[in-house]
Every structure is written in C-alpha cells, then in structure tokens.
Nucleic acid binder design. Structure first.
Length: 404
RNA sequence: GCGGCGUUAGCUCAGCUGGUAGAGCUCUCGGUUGUGGUCCGAGCGGUCGUGGGUUCGAGUCCCACACGUCGCC
C-alpha cells in the first residue's frame, strides 16, 4: 500500500472530484492548498487555517533548508509536528527558486506574463559565472543541478535532484515534488525545450532517489512536474514523458501568459493518467482556479490570497478591492457582504482599512483570513457543484459576478 | 533690551560662489499567481515667513518687521 492514494469520485466534463488519502489525513478535491513557505501560513494560526476550510498546507524546501535547516525540522518530528499542523502537508522542491532567484532576480518578472510582454527577451536562467556576477543573479544551472547563493547571507549552496529529495525526506511532508526548473515566461522556445528535457532527467533522478529510500517510501508520495512553458507541443511532450514515470501524482509547473494558460494546461492534462492526482503549481487567482478545475486539475497552491491580503487587497464577489483606498475609510459594511468568512464576522472595511493604514498586524491577519476563506470556499463550492452536476453554471455565475 | 541660529511640500529637511526649487516620509492610485514581497511602481503637492531694496534676474545678497529657539544683561 502506497502512502498516497487517489480516487476519482464525480465528473463534470473534464472537471472531477476526488479523495486524496495521505498519512496525515484525507484531502477532498478539488482543493486549494494554502502556502506555508517557511512552515507557516503568514499570519494565520493552524487552528484558524482549519476553520477557514484548509485541508493541507505547502511548505518550501529552499527556504526551510536555509533556515532553520532540514535537520531542525526532522528533529522536531517532521513538518507537521514542527508547525503544529495536524493535517496533510506538501513541500515544493526548490525548483521555483531556481527561477525566482535566477532569471527573475532583480527584474519584475513573474511566472505569469502579461499580454504583449511575452516572448522576445530570452530571459533564461543559465548563466556562467561572469554573467552571474555581472547581473547579481543568485542561481546558476548546469546539467547536474543548481548552484545558488543564499538570499539571507550570500553563502554558496548547491541543489541536485538527489539533494532536494534528501532534504524533502527530512522535512517529511506527505507529498513532495521532484526537483525541476521553472523557466521564465520570457525564455524562447529553444530554451524552454532544453530546460524541459533537463527537468525530465531531473524527474527521473528525483524518483529514483526517492524509491531507493524504503523508509521514506512508506510515508511520503512524490509528484513529478510537467514543464514546457506556453508551448503546447512542449507541454504535450513533457506530460507524456513525466506520465511515463511512476509518480504518485503530477504537478503542472512553469510559466506562461494568461492567454496561453488554458492551451498549455489542456495539452498537458490530456496525457496525464486519469487515476492520479494533478496539482497546479502556483495557481491561482479565483478565475484561474475555476479554469484549472474545469480542465481536470485537483489541487492548487498560490501565494496570491495571503500576499494580496497583506498588502490590502481583498477578494469580493464583485472582484478585488484595495482596502487602503480612501473610499473605504468610512465604509462600515462587511469585507464582502456576499461572502462572510468564518472568524471575520463583524469586521468592517473601514476598520480593516484603518488597521492596514496604521500598520497594525491584525489588519494583515484579517485580510489574509478573508482572502484564504474566500478562495477555499470558492473551490469547495466547485466541488459541490461538480458532484451535483452544475459546475458549468457555477463557474459561469462566479465569473460573471467577479468580472462585473 | 542685546546677540546668535532658524523660518523652503501635510511632516522632517537639502538647495556651493544669485539663473523662477529637490529628497525621504505622509497622502492618492496602480501592481502582486510553486512568497528574495511590512514589497514594487506612478502621481498629487510649494506665490521658498512678511514687506521693501540691489540686480537683466533673488530661496540665495542688503534692510526692516513677524514668529520660533538658544544665550547674555
């Protein structure tokens, strides 16, 4: 019996509901996974997280490796015990940091390119030492792995697929990801292809490293990651290749522009096995979650809800609003009258606006709670809608209201 | 009463030898999709204490006054 199992329950077109079983509990999918990079969801107590409806949390290998070090987490009894979270956990492999500390470092590039900003500029992540010092990049990639300097103290470190898996074994999450490279959306086709094939080789090595550790195999599942940027032929090649490896589930990673997201997703999902769980890495915004669910994705993680909340933007059924705007200082209505999140009842826009403007941490906490609750409820609603055969209408109604 | 210093954006302050003004913060508004994010970007905002004078030209030099502040009788 494998530690991580998945069972599809209901379907609506390509969308589906399922149950993902892990050693620390069950995840009913589709599910949104709050991001707990440094073994905490910024500003949210585990107990609160549960009340908001979260079933699972995702921490980061790169960050926990640098601080406090994976040995500390292992010493605490693993990620769950360490962060006092009794539900399922996941860890990301550190592959995303290859991008955020490499090609994206010091530039305003995110994994989602906007409209015209696409292509052109070959913002690749492979740099030789000279270019590295020239541009202040923190990561350099070669066939074996990634050498990077810590953003905390400048010290030199190296990740290989084997090392990433070793660290993730120490962290002990129920589900962890193979070491990959998240390319920049500005990288050209040739670079995307080469990086993707390198990621495939790394996937094989990650899987092998995991299967060799019999102890870890009893307690942890490993997901492989599909890459290929915004190119459908690359997505297809990547999905076939990764699907041919015996992973416990699959993640879809990488970058694309908003316009290409659906095409890239469809091209990949088509070639993933039906009976395995699929995770959409780093997605997303409310509309993108429903898009992903419609295309058959099961789990999602994204920093947007908490990051936006900390900076004063909250989700409402009518779209996002920035609470620090002047117009909300005297607005004593609920954060979103159409969606009251558990634990935030009674807090008004004007009050939270005041807290945020005056730098009170409670403002960030309430806004983060609201956004997390909003997203969790949205995805939970999608699950119900799929089971009741009305997902299309559910999605349409939300998009119409949210975009209006 | 005498003397010194000060008076420039809402706040705290830069503006050399004269060429009609800048910064940081605040404020207003954007941005944020596997968290290098109490972050990033843009914008609004001043008849330079008042009144004279010198000069082609004064925030800059001169005089007087007002206000603040420190010191001395």
């Amino acid at each position: 019996m494998k530690p991580v199992n998945f069972k599809v329950e209901a379907r609506a077109g390509r969308a589906r509901t399922g149950v993902l079983t892990t050693p620390h509990g069950v995840i009913e999918t589709p599910a949104f996974v709050p991001v707990a990079t440094k073994a905490n969801v910024k500003g949210i107590l585990p107990e609160t997280l549960k009340e908001l409806g979260a079933q699972v949390a995702l921490a980061n290998t790169y960050h926990l490796y640098l601080q406090p070090g994976e040995a500390v987490v292992r010493g605490a009894g693993g990620l769950n015990a360490f962060m006092n979270w009794n539900g399922p956990t996941m860890t990301d492999s550190g592959g995303f940091q290859v991008f955020s500390l490499g090609a994206a470092y010091g530039r305003s590039i995110t994994k989602i390119a906007k409209g015209e900003e696409n292509a052109r500029d070959a913002g690749v992540a492979v740099y030789d030492e000279g270019v590295q010092s020239q541009h202040g990049q923190l990561a350099v990639i070669d066939e074996e792995g990634v050498t990077f300097t810590s953003h905390l103290d400048g010290s030199l470190h190296r990740f290989t697929p084997e090392r990433s898996v070793e660290i993730q074994h120490a962290l002990g999450a129920d589900i962890f990801f193979a070491f990959d490279e998240c390319t920049s959306p500005t990288a050209d086709y040739e670079y995307q292809r080469d990086a993707m094939r390198r990621t495939h080789r790394w996937a094989e090595r990650s899987l092998k490293a995991h299967r060799q550790n019999l102890h870890a195999n009893k307690k942890q599942g490993i997901f492989g990651i599909v890459q290929g940027g915004r190119y459908e032929d690359l997505r297809e090649e990547s999905a076939k290749e990764i699907a041919s490896m015996d992973f416990d589930g699959y993640g879809i990673g990488g970058s694309f522009s908003k316009e290409d997201m659906m095409g890239a997703l469809q091209a990949a999902v088509r070639h993933l096995p039906e009976e395995k769980p699929r995770h959409f890495l780093g997605i997303g915004e409310p509309g993108d979650l429903l898009l992903g669910i419609a295309e058959g994705m099961d789990t999602f993680d994204c920093v947007a809800a908490t990051r936006l909340g900390r900076h004063g933007t909250i989700y409402t059924m009518q779209g996002t609003i920035n609470l620090t705007n002047e117009q909300y200082t005297n607005d004593f209505t609920p954060l979103d009258p159409a969606r009251i999140v558990p634990g935030t009842e009674g807090f008004t826009r004007g009050y939270v606006s005041h807290l945020l403007r005056s730098g009170e941490m409670l403002g960030q906490v309430i806004a983060s709670m609201h956004n997390l609750g909003f997203i969790l409820k949205l995805v939970d609603g999608a699950r119900e809608a799929i089971q009741e055969g009305r997902f299309g209408a559910y999605r349409e109604a939300f998009v119409r209201s949210y975009a209006a």
